[in-house]
Amino acid sequence: MSFIDDPQFGNTMITLMAALVLVLQIATVGQRWLITTIRIFAVQSFFLAAIAGTIAFFNQANHLYIAALLTLVLKAILLPFLLERTVERVGIRKEIEPLINVPLSLLISGCLTLVGYVVAESFYHPEETSAQSALGHNTLAVAIALFLIGFFMMLNRRKALTQVLGLLSMENGLFLAAISLTYGMPLVVELGIFFDVLVAVMVFGILAYRIGESFDSMDVSKLRSLRG
């Protein structure tokens, strides 16, 4: 199995998985069912963990294995589980019409991906033909696109839970940028971020449940009626 040792093959696989992550992100934009959105997020996180593992394997960056494992356990299994339980408890399964209709939001996500590429282009210097810069060029664009589309999702959706998912996919974009550019942040920072995300989701889960209880809906625009 010679191609296992070939860094070129590693780069191909990483680029492919980054593209899949991007496709899944765009799929969430067009998705109405909350459960499906959560599952897509879980698959996306799984691919992210796979990218981290592949980078760790081909660049002998051993601490990245821990980050990959944490991503797998936390973001691909634990967080989706928590979020799905919140959905079960609130009993709201479907997103109402988003603020901007689906075909237009898909077009906007396509444009945001382009923006990601344009921004990433300025970080790319072809004269430094190290493996790292080539890798960074491909995945950084995807990472920026993930970040922007996640942000757009937070603006576009009205349900508290989909906004949380937008935030989580923004975090996925940051993680992807970090591992592809610098082979990951120091482990302490990594652990801190994971813990942060975990606590955030738990708090959001309780908050979403409370909103659902008091308003019979998870529509955050109804929070305005709290004004005195």
Partner: peptide, 21 residues
């Protein structure tokens, strides 16, 4: 049309990424 919009965006991204990746 939403499903086909997904296909359109995927196709557009495919064409764009031929030049970029």
């Amino acid at each position: 049309p939403e499903l086909l919009a997904v296909a359109f965006i995927l196709g557009a991204l495919a064409l764009i990424s031929t030049f970029l990746f």
